[in-house]
């Protein structure tokens, strides 16, 4: 109990310190609007990657439809705050987005989560595309041309807090009864089943939590960038999130943070390279995969428990 409190306080200090560091850097002008944009993009990508990592890395379900749920959140927020641009409605819209994303995840997950591996990937990809095509053809969403001038409520502090909240939810879920059940499903479905674990229920739980966090990221994206179009949420976006997860390490939340940050910085640094940028990006991606096949962090996590007790062999729990 005491020890847990110590680690929790460490994480809290880290989060608060990060916030004030960012604040200070903006005040003294080290972080300009270009860099702020980079940091916020990284933050949104962290939310997306952490949620997808829960589904792929911890529950072991290969989903390729993350962008579809992101779209749900993005459009819920855009539509609601374009009508009523108040902070209250903005926060309400996040909740509405999350609820719709959960419903969508249930509709998609209940039939498809009985599929395995690549078949699940391709089915969830299809489902996400269906969501996107529906949005593409709706009046309320303004069809293919998307929505503009969305009021900006998602400033960097809001995004920062959302990164912390979603990560805490996901990490704490992983290190609880449900998360352990999901891990068992990843490791061996038949053994989990025989140990009394409702395999389908925990797969679905992880999938739904992942979808809910994706919706939050979508809300942030829509209200920070202020314009969205259905094409922002296509297969390529799902793949971009997958790349962060695999690059960081499947099953490492720390890895998702690191990879999202590195890719965000690389992307910003390559802005001036024009058309060559994506070629370099592609090469870097291939090389990292060849030389570090398990991703930057493997399945390792940053852990205060381990920092304080270097002898402990446990790969660490964030809590």
């Amino acid at each position: 109990m005491k020890a847990n409190l110590k680690y929790n306080i460490c994480w809290l200090i880290l989060m608060v310190a990060g916030f004030y560091l960012m604040n200070a850097l903006i005040l003294v002008g080290v972080i300009d609007s270009f860099l702020e944009n980079m940091v916020v993009t990284i933050g949104i990508n962290i939310i997306l990657a952490v949620g997808l990592n829960l589904v792929i890395g911890f529950a072991g379900q290969f989903s390729l439809g993350h962008a579809g749920f992101m779209a749900v959140g993005a459009y819920a927020t855009s539509i609601m705050i374009s009508k009523t641009p108040t902070a209250g409605v903005f926060y309400l819209s996040i909740i509405v987005g999350v609820i719709i994303a959960i419903i969508a995840a249930l509709i998609v997950g209940i039939p498809t989560l009985r599929l395995r591996g690549d078949y699940l990937a391709i089915a969830t990809m299809g489902a996400a595309e269906i969501i996107r095509i529906i949005i593409n053809n709706m009046k309320m969403t303004n069809g293919p041309s998307g929505m503009f001038n969305i009021p900006q409520f998602a400033t960097w502090p809001v995004v920062y807090i959302m990164v912390c909240v979603t990560t805490i939810i996901v990490v704490n879920f992983i290190h609880s009864r449900g998360g352990r059940a999901a891990l068992a499903v990843r490791e061996d479905e038949i053994a989990a089943d025989s140990m009394g674990i409702n395999v389908f229920k925990w797969k679905l739980a992880a999938f739904v939590i992942g979808a809910a966090t994706a919706a939050v990221a979508g809300s942030m994206q829509a209200s920070y960038v202020q314009t969205i179009a259905p094409n922002n949420f296509n297969i390529m976006e799902s793949i971009a999130i997958l790349i962060i997860v695999v690059l960081g390490g499947v099953g490492s939340i720390t890895g998702s943070f690191v990879a999202a940050t590195i890719l965000g910085i690389v992307d910003a640094a390559l802005q001036s390279f024009g058309a060559l940028r994506m070629v370099i990006y592609a090469l870097v991606l291939i090389l990292i995969m060849i030389f570090k096949p398990s991703g930057i962090m493997g399945a390792k996590e940053l852990s205060f428990k381990r920092l304080f007790n270097p002898k402990s062999r446990k790969a660490g729990a964030k809590s």
Partner: peptide, 17 residues
């Protein structure tokens, strides 16, 4: 993991520690 069915933790309790 094998004990999963024999105890309860609700989502809010575990997520907010």
């Amino acid at each position: 993991i094998a004990m999963t069915a024999n105890y309860r933790e609700n989502f809010v309790q575990s997520v907010f520690r």
